[in-house]
Design a protein around this nucleic acid. Structure first.
Lengths: 256, 256
DNA sequence: CAGTGGTCTAGACCACGTG
DNA sequence: ACGTGGTCTAGACCACTGC
């Protein structure tokens, strides 16, 4: 019973429904499952309990649990697999691996990609970085830069800031040893799951330094993508400023 | 009875479920409602029949209709309003009016906007325009250009192509007389509802002509946004190439 | 074969909007 | 008071997976 912190439904809702604290049962269940994810009760890639188990645990019907899970699956936090169960989404999977990489080649898609880490150091958060990561100015952050190349032509220059408290042990050597997508590493090595991101996109002219790293002319147009990525509970855990060469690649987007 | 073209469910599904034509009942209902929208059985802004009416018409339970409507509402084709009914989405509404305009000012949001039409003429589709609009090269298209200004500074230069067959009577004079968002006009005046769009985004250098119209220096970085917009049934009905000045505005995007 | 999620139904009660 | 969509429940049968 101590597992359940739901609004008491034994009393018919009546006026209680008008109170600010009211939310539908399935939303409360959704919140409880989210807490479980956040606590790490089920790790990325693992199955969560079956709908019937969760229904028993939370003392609601299977249908209510189902609606909660439906929404979490729609948000890409969970993945349903018929006949097998419901699994915690992970970046270690072909299907959703490049969910956050929107750059697409003009022609056929496959491209050999490689990453070169330029630097990685601990620093104190400037006022603006702190604001975007919900830190205080001067708090410890990790700052790194890298160049991503496709088919050996440098295409993306990324500058990344992370809260120091969450990524202890993230060093240049560690990064250089690591293979594969950064978000998969954050998840596996530091237990931080990126779940959602907001981007601000502009066209800018390449500075001298950027031009040299990307092997283009100074002043060439670059797509600037400033991203704040969030984990469970909408807590910001990464700030990334990317500069993309969009000669043979474009940023794809769908509007609904 | 002639209203219903569902797969026969009197026969238990059995192996039929393995056939290519199989889809869940609620998906079939969704398709039927979509056809109604496409036919114009219910106009944008109008209410569709209540869930119980549709359930009776299609000979399924209210729950099945509900699931179909849920998906259409998630796609922004329908809008549910508690106590009132379910309505056909429209661009003539404050809430969703600027659904497709992703440009946002760096500071406070409101900005007086004005549109200047540069030209509007009938033409024959070039091969590439035809391909993107699902036409044949040489088919009639309408081609127009305009400049959008915010707070009196020119910010967006749009070039738009439309299938001539759908937009008869769209002339320069007509455009200049019209007030308000283009998609609302397409919907109200030509019965074409934009439902979804795909964009390809790049950074480019402004040409002389673009620079003059946008009052910036030639070669300045511009955000190029190439959009194909679709109506019901994923039929492309607009091609638009926009160039945005992103000095004081940015293109916002959310990744899930 | 058993267990999982997927689909479908039926019915209850609620909150909201309108008359 | 009535009709709408919103929430919740209960139970049936299906399809997929793995033992």
């Amino acid at each position: 019973m101590s597992d359940s912190h739901l609004i008491d439904r034994q009393q018919p809702l009546g006026r209680a429904a008008h109170s600010a604290a009211f939310s539908p049962l399935y939303q409360q269940i959704k919140g409880l499952i989210l807490q479980g994810l956040d606590r790490g009760e089920w790790k990325p890639g693992e199955a969560i309990p079956s709908e019937l188990e969760l229904a028993a645990r939370f003392q609601v019907s299977q249908g209510t649990v189902r609606k909660a899970i439906d929404e979490l699956a729609a948000d890409n936090l969970l993945i349903r697999r018929q006949g097998k169960g419901t699994f915690v989404a992970t970046h270690n999977e072909a299907k959703v691996r490049y969910r956050f990489l929107r750059l697409t080649p003009d022609d056929g898609q496959p491209a050999a990609s490689s990453s070169q880490i330029l630097d990685c150091r601990r620093a104190k958060a400037s006022a603006d970085v702190a604001a975007m990561l919900d830190l205080r100015a001067g708090d410890a952050v990790i700052s790194m830069r890298r160049v991503l190349s496709f088919n050996d032509s440098p295409t993306i220059l990324d500058e990344i800031w992370l809260p120091g408290s969450l990524f202890k042990g993230l060093t240049l050597e560690f990064l250089q040893r690591y293979r594969g997508p950064v978000y998969a590493m954050f998840e596996t090595e530091f237990g931080v799951s990126m779940v959602r991101a907001e981007e601000k996109i502009r066209a800018v002219a390449a500075t001298e330094a950027q031009a040299e790293l990307l092997r283009i002319g100074a002043g060439s147009p670059l797509l600037q993508v400033e991203r704040v990525a969030y984990t469970y509970g909408d807590r910001p855990v990464e700030l990334r400023r990317g500069h993309y060469v969009t000669e043979r690649y474009y940023y794809r987007n769908s509007l609904n």
